[in-house]
Design a protein around this nucleic acid. Structure first.
Lengths: 123, 123
DNA sequence: GGGACTGTGTAGTAAACACTACACATCAAG
DNA sequence: CTTGATGTGTAGTGTTTACTACACAGTCCC
């Protein structure tokens, strides 16, 4: 694998913001977004360029909310896993460890199918 | 549940070691275990009494190996989730986030059944 | 009663994490 | 031409994580 994903989170974030800026220019300047999220503009700037590593989960969640992105995807790009998902695993470590390692090999549609069947109360 | 302990990891670890010590006293002194795991005895002592927070994943894995414990369980007691499981989730965040949050409500036997069916190649 | 063990107390450290504060250069608009 | 906004550079801070180093007291053995 090439080192293509060095700034995966950074790039995704900047692209997402500039995309929103096309629609609503004034509301999605770096400074405005930083202000709504509650961080320093210079910090967001560095994050968007990958100068700084991705921020903490809280900031990522607020960014996702403002940008209409999926928090879990953004967290993943930041190399993190949502704290609530971790808690779910920790509650039954063996069960979920086994299941996840099994599903690792499976294609998307298989995982999706499992999820759907579970949701549809077939268990 | 009895007094759900603040020092769940600590107590579990100490109990596990002292249990092994009944069988093979010399091999499971605090110092011997610390030596095999590659940490300072005083550090292990503090960990076993909950004076210090649980160690990193590497140390926990080596402790589990020496004590014949399940690494995922030990990690869970330490408030952590195995790095490899996190990587599995990060590879397909939406899929696994949805599945896990769905399975959270389900009883053990249901999760187990899903895992078994997946393993048995019904997908 | 000196050695060789136990476990423990005190102190400190090095790196990573998650940010803030403020000054600066640039550019568009009035 | 200066005002007000944009993004960015430099510097620094408090906290957490993950440990090490070494000295110490008690116990068992002869």
């Amino acid at each position: 694998m090439a080192a293509s994903n060095e700034h995966a989170f950074a790039d995704y974030l900047r692209d997402s913001r500039t995309a929103r800026a096309k629609a609503d220019a004034a509301a999605f300047t770096l400074r405005q977004l930083a202000r709504r999220v509650g961080i320093e503009p210079s910090y967001l700037s560095k994050i968007e360029r990958g100068t700084q590593p991705p921020p903490g989960e809280g900031v990522i969640r607020r960014l996702a909310a403002e940008l209409g992105e999926d928090p879990d995807v953004l967290l993943a790009l930041a190399g993190k896993v949502s704290a609530d998902l971790q808690a779910i695993i920790r509650a039954r470590p063996q069960l979920f460890a086994q299941l996840l390692r099994e599903l690792k090999k499976m294609p998307d549609h298989a995982v999706l199918r499992v999820a759907r069947e579970v949701r549809d109360g077939k268990w």
